[in-house]
Amino acid sequence: MDSQVVTKAPLFSALDRAAAERLMDSMTPHRLSRGDIVFREGDQGDSLYVIASGKIKLARTSGDGRENLLSVLGPGEMFGELSLFDPGPRVSTAYVISHTELISLGNDALRTVLSEHPEVAMQMLAGLAHRLRLTNEGISDLVFTDVPGRVAKALLDLSDRFGRRTEAGLLVGHELTQEELAQLVGASRETVNKALADFAHRGWLILGAKAVTLVDLDRLRRRAR
């Protein structure tokens, strides 16, 4: 497990190296495969999780069974911490979308950490505020931005966290199905596929299996506005 990746999470960022390593040693490791579920919507929240490697998607299900993909998280990111500040059932289901390593900390142990290191609470609240800001932006995009613009913005966001430079461009191994990518931008699969095909035709990107190579970032950024 890469400790340098893990300590990027807000839970560790306010701690010195020795305190961060002690906390990491006290946490429970988990190794999961694609399709595994960390927790389900409605479960009682009793732990937070930090991603050491791999990817997790957070999704909600409507009353008629439709699924809404809220976010895709990767190494160094944290989830499940809302249950500490707002005790109650989980508001989403956490699915594993690639081989993933996690470490978890129970709420009781976390409260002890926060009492000993109150600066950690400020970092965690800052992380929650950032996530809330992204949620508000997503709501605005659904109202004011067309589907191609939302697709471009989603690809750029995924590239910031999962992109890897290659000779062809910025390779983004998002590992999402076409349906999952459509859920992420709040549109039908057909409309999202049409937007992707148009971007590919224009030479802005190269489509792959659960991956995309971004070739013209400037044009994608302008389209995302």
Rank of each mutant, 00 (worst) to 15 (best):
residue 43 D to T: 02
residue 43 D to G: 01
residue 46 D to N: 07
residue 47 S to F: 07
residue 47 S to V: 01
residue 50 V to M: 08
residue 51 I to H: 00
residue 51 I to T: 00
residue 51 I to Q: 02
residue 51 I to C: 01
residue 52 A to K: 04
residue 53 S to F: 06
residue 53 S to L: 07
residue 55 K to P: 00
residue 55 K to Q: 14
residue 56 I to L: 03
residue 57 K to R: 13
residue 59 A to H: 08
residue 60 R to L: 12
residue 61 T to W: 02
residue 61 T to H: 11
residue 61 T to S: 12
residue 62 S to F: 11
residue 62 S to G: 11
residue 65 G to E: 07
residue 65 G to Q: 07
residue 67 E to A: 07
residue 67 E to M: 10
residue 71 S to D: 12
residue 72 V to G: 00
residue 73 L to G: 01
residue 73 L to Y: 04
residue 75 P to W: 05
residue 75 P to V: 04
residue 76 G to R: 08
residue 76 G to W: 06
residue 76 G to C: 05
residue 76 G to S: 05
residue 80 G to E: 09
residue 80 G to V: 00
residue 81 E to H: 07
residue 83 S to F: 01
residue 84 L to I: 09
residue 84 L to G: 00
residue 85 F to N: 06
residue 86 D to R: 12
residue 86 D to L: 15
residue 88 G to V: 07
residue 88 G to Q: 13
residue 88 G to H: 08
residue 88 G to R: 09
residue 89 P to C: 01
residue 89 P to Y: 05
residue 90 R to M: 06
residue 92 S to P: 12
residue 95 Y to A: 06
residue 96 V to W: 06
residue 97 I to N: 04
residue 98 S to T: 15
residue 98 S to N: 12
residue 99 H to L: 13
residue 99 H to E: 15
residue 99 H to G: 12
residue 100 T to H: 05
residue 101 E to A: 13
residue 102 L to Q: 03
residue 102 L to V: 06
residue 103 I to W: 12
residue 103 I to M: 14
residue 104 S to Y: 03
residue 104 S to C: 02
residue 105 L to M: 14
residue 105 L to G: 01
residue 106 G to R: 11
residue 106 G to N: 13
residue 107 N to Y: 07
residue 108 D to C: 01
residue 108 D to S: 09
residue 108 D to K: 06
residue 109 A to C: 07
residue 112 T to S: 15
residue 113 V to M: 02
residue 115 S to Q: 14
residue 116 E to F: 03
residue 116 E to K: 08
residue 117 H to F: 14
residue 117 H to V: 00
residue 118 P to V: 11
residue 119 E to F: 00
residue 119 E to T: 10
residue 120 V to F: 02
residue 121 A to S: 15
residue 122 M to P: 04
residue 123 Q to T: 10
residue 125 L to H: 11
residue 126 A to I: 06
residue 126 A to E: 08
residue 128 L to Q: 15
residue 128 L to K: 08
residue 129 A to H: 06
residue 130 H to Y: 11
residue 131 R to M: 15
residue 132 L to D: 10
residue 133 R to L: 08
residue 133 R to W: 05
residue 134 L to T: 12
residue 134 L to Q: 15
residue 135 T to Y: 09
residue 137 E to H: 11
residue 138 G to E: 08
residue 138 G to R: 15
residue 139 I to L: 13
residue 140 S to R: 14
residue 140 S to T: 15
residue 146 D to P: 09
residue 148 P to T: 08
residue 149 G to E: 09
residue 150 R to H: 11
residue 150 R to Y: 06
residue 152 A to C: 09
residue 152 A to I: 09
residue 154 A to D: 03
residue 154 A to C: 10
residue 155 L to Y: 07
residue 157 D to S: 13
residue 158 L to E: 04
residue 158 L to A: 03
residue 160 D to F: 11
residue 161 R to A: 10
residue 162 F to V: 04
residue 162 F to Y: 13
residue 163 G to T: 05
